[in-house]
Amino acid sequence: MQRLITKQDLVNKLTELLKDFEVVGPKELSNKGIFYQVIEDAKELYLGQDFAIEPIKKFFLEPSSWILRHAKDDVSLESFPQSDKKRIVIGARPCEAKGLALLDKLFDSEYKDDFYINNRKRTIVVGLACAKPDMSCFCTSMQGSPAETSGMDALIFESGDGFIIELVTDKAKHILGSIGEDIKEDQKLNKDKMKALVKKVIKTPESLDKVFESDYWDEVSRPCISCGVCTFLCPTCHCFDLVDEEKKRMRCYDGCSFPDFTLEASGVNPRPTKKERYRQRVFHKFDYFKKNFGENLCVGCGRCIRHCPVKIDIADIVDKAPI
């Protein structure tokens, strides 16, 4: 279901929703870039085409969050209370929303992680289609597109002075179905055409098994400085640590690029050098996750390429892997 809405329609609707919902969207901070933040006034929203530095993931799997504490009796332990406030995320990109769909596969299966699930359940995700993918974007190689709706409840497209909104889920139809006007057939967007906007195209092998032992990983990981930029800014990287601080237990981001990630108390580290660590990142994304869940754990958002302090390009590395 697609509808035509004006910018004012959107601002008015969000202003109305602000009464009952927490609204999260992109804000432009001068000289710093775009950041997803809680919005207090619909006018603060940035709905331009520049990408946020961090993905929307941080509102579902927080960089750090308390999960346990001592109960009042000081003996038993209890969960940290979680917010059940309804929330609307606006302006997340199709790649980031697809990242959520991939995280769902992990956190909403087998041992279900209710912290993540609660954040998903209380949130409506309204995406913004990409009109200007940049040279790091490669979503179409990851079964995505600038107008993909996976992981979303609704998607808006820039169209002239206003937007076209596509309502995907009933949740979105219920809350946003009343704004704007019906769209005429000839105004409907050709979503397939948008795929051509993405210029970076790579091939991903079905399995990387054969190149595990290759010196290639040594070579491509050499520039890596073992920081956490790629993992923390990745919409799908989900590795975490559990840390106790002052009678509380916290879950916080961790990543395979850090030597400490797998360093055992005995001093043994099964991934002692950048080679093993970088290979783990590539294999987790383009081999292991695919074996376990049928898809690459990558959405082609390009963040790890765009923000890598030394310009390591994972897409190029996978594309050129000596299979």
Binding site: K32, F35, P63, C227, C252, Y253, P309
Partner: peptide, 12 residues
Amino acid sequence: SRCIRCYACRQI
């Protein structure tokens, strides 16, 4: 407040 503790500053 925007620091994500990625330690890129240290690693670089």
